[in-house]
Design a protein around this nucleic acid. Structure first.
Lengths: 222, 222
DNA sequence: CCTACCGATCGGTAGG
DNA sequence: CCTACCGATCGGTAGG
């Protein structure tokens, strides 16, 4: 929204800002906000600490920038996901797409969890603005599904979506931890088990949301 | 296992250790390991920092102590939960009991998530020792349920348990964040919605694990 | 975007 | 369990 100030004196245009955001995102995600020093961020992009502080006047401002950049990506990407998957019977497609999206950059899932833990208020404010509208759409879709007899009547739309977000984000963030918790998971080939875990997640979502086909009313268009 | 050294010169016996662990657990959970200073821990129990370092020779040792104390509690409490709920049809009882247990001390759920994020190896080692045997029992129980035709055949026992742990811990840790994510959740009375969310979590678990009663074979004892 | 520098706080030690 | 103290690093500023 704010017109980004371009510094005329610099050789390259200010994509330095974006490089800093990318590096800070990764470091905050892996080591946490308090576990990451400005020095470490600056070093990773090849500048000095005071130069970083020119782009972001404080460490808190950097955090805010990281959070806003992530949410901005979501706005676009979630819209794309929702548009791509024609949601009729397959609301779980949306979930699958979300998880796939997060799996490409597990950074984001971990950063999200961290911020939920130690920056609750800041995250809440951003969520309310950027995420709530989209979850609202999904909830409404579930309600319509219930009216059409496709979705189970005992499902509580809001609570269901909330649980699926928790499950999806948590699953991605901790995908590699499975073997330590449950015997037989991820002891051997990692990819195979990751697929199994993902498939199970989607099965849980699907079974707990949709009525069995046999019990559904005859299907029509729309 | 290690015989705890009792300091003869001290007036009170060394329950100072336990007070330190309790306070450190709370602070690590709320502010994170890197966000908590030894000074803050010492201050909270009313001693000086070097005195803390007498009980725990380093910050890392304190973290380890906190983790081990938590896992030790689990060993006992999980056993109690498993013994209490006669698991026949109601494996979700175990889940409900677990969540109830965590809800009493949300500290533990948050601490667990934090450690999973920035102390992966340390946590893995502890899990492998203390948690895996219990999850193994649950998995075997699910398998038996499948053999008896009570549990859905498409459920993958290991992956299911893993997802339920992620869901349970995540739900407790972020219970108060729901309103910011999903419209209509926790906008009004918090307790009411917490119950709704919990009920939905249990519904999801139950529906996705058990076959509908109608489809089950005639039930016999054991 | 840099060098030079600041006070505060960090985890930890010495020594009793 | 304390006082006294350490070097290192923290986030941030001055000034160019």
């Amino acid at each position: 929204m704010k017109p980004r100030q371009t510094d005329e004196r610099t050789t390259e245009p200010t994509d330095m800002r974006e490089r800093l955001l990318a590096v800070a995102t990764a470091l905050f995600a892996e080591r946490g906000f308090h576990g990451t020093s400005l020095q470490a961020v600056a070093e990773a992009v090849g500048i000095r600490k005071p130069s970083l502080l020119y782009h972001f006047p404080s460490k808190g401002a950097l955090r805010q920038g990281v959070l806003e950049a992530m949410l901005a990506h979501w706005r676009a990407d979630i819209a794309a996901v929702l548009a791509r998957s024609r949601v009729r019977d397959q609301l779980t497609d949306v979930l699958a797409a979300m998880i796939g999206y997060f799996r490409e950059t597990p950074h984001r899932a971990r950063l999200l969890l961290r911020e939920a833990l130690d920056n609750r208020e800041g995250l809440e404010a951003l969520f309310r603005q950027h995420l709530k509208p989209w979850t609202g759409l999904l909830i409404e879709h579930i309600r319509r599904g219930q009216a059409h007899g496709v979705v189970r009547e005992d499902a509580r739309p809001e609570a269901f979506i909330l649980q699926m977000i928790v499950l999806g984000v948590g699953y991605v963030a901790f995908a590699d931890l499975g073997g330590a918790i449950v015997p037989g998971v991820m002891d051997a080939t990692a990819d195979r088990d990751t697929d199994t875990n993902l498939a199970e997640l989607l099965r849980i979502a699907h079974v707990s949301l949709y009525r069995p086909r046999a019990e559904r009313p005859a299907e029509e268009d729309r």
